[in-house]
Design a protein around this nucleic acid. Sequence first.
DNA 1: CGGCTTTGACCTGCGC
DNA 2: GCGCAGGTCAAAGCCG
Length: 342
Amino acid sequence: MENKRENPMANLSFSDENPAVAATGFGGGGTFDMSACEGISGGDNKWGSLGFMDLLGISQDSIAPSLFDSFQPPPLLPPLPPSTSSELHRQQLQLQLQQGHPSPASTVPESSEVLTNPTTPNSSSFSSSSNEAANDIHEPTKVEDNEEQEEDQDKTKKQLNLKPKKKNQKKQREPRFAFMTKSEVDHLDDGYRWRKYGQKAVKNSPFPRSYYRCTSAGCGVKKRVERSSDDATIVVTTYEGQHTHTYPITPRGTMGIGLDPSGFSVPQPRYLHQHQQSYIYNSSPSLNISTTATTSLNASFPSFLRERRFSTPSSSASLLTDRGLLQDIVPTQMRKEAKEEH
DNA sequence: CGGCTTTGACCTGCGC
DNA sequence: GCGCAGGTCAAAGCCG
């Protein structure tokens, strides 16, 4: 089992819950059209070392649409957790550290390569209602509080076996984002400790989806892991929520040193809720999916992915667009529209 | 013995 | 309202 946390040969492909991307309002006002960055794939362009945070415009100095232009490749990394063995990986982590990017001791396999687009997602953006997304845009700072309250209520409701309370108020979800990893193991070690609390068969997929929850007390971060039905070597991981603690909780093959945990929990406060972004994902010329996102979502993004290379495998796009996680990320209505166009 | 995984049951949301 | 699928719970079992 322990070995499951390692991912020796994973080919990390970071993907957003959606593929090709066009972001509008990125960085709080500017318009950023990522769809123009076709060269993202291959990891041979300036995006090559872009981190998730960076992509969201949350890097050290704040956000700006032009941020992508000024992005600098990450430098070196932190000592590796026991779980990660690759020298390459180690160097990468060190680079991250030096650069000031907290990086969890995650298990990014050596040859890992982030293949994705920046992700997006965010909280209600991923909710099933486009209206919710719209609301979030207007009231960004309320999102998290509501989510927390909702979550508590949900818990209570379940425990007491009660019916839902508020009417006309859909359950809001935690900020989410997903990424794809090419790996032989399902559960990548991102430095945090997770407890598996469920597994379900996924429709249209021969592979089950596993549900994990952060084991840290009071931390409600969850993540779902499933393999792509299209490509069994691809693992789709979806994170939901923000860690409320500092990085590695326990020595579990990861370092418990003071690395900023992921930026998960210690996300630069100044960024939280400050920027509302709206993305439009274009997995194809005819498919336009839009969602909104707040930078707070960065807090959920595994730092181990932040410094990975991004690319945009068309397969990634189609993968998420076709089934599984997509439904959680893209409002139903949008999916319908996309279908109609086809 | 504590922590974690497994797995069937149950709950909830959504589409028809 | 019904059925389906996703998500969660919690008992049982496994493992170090």
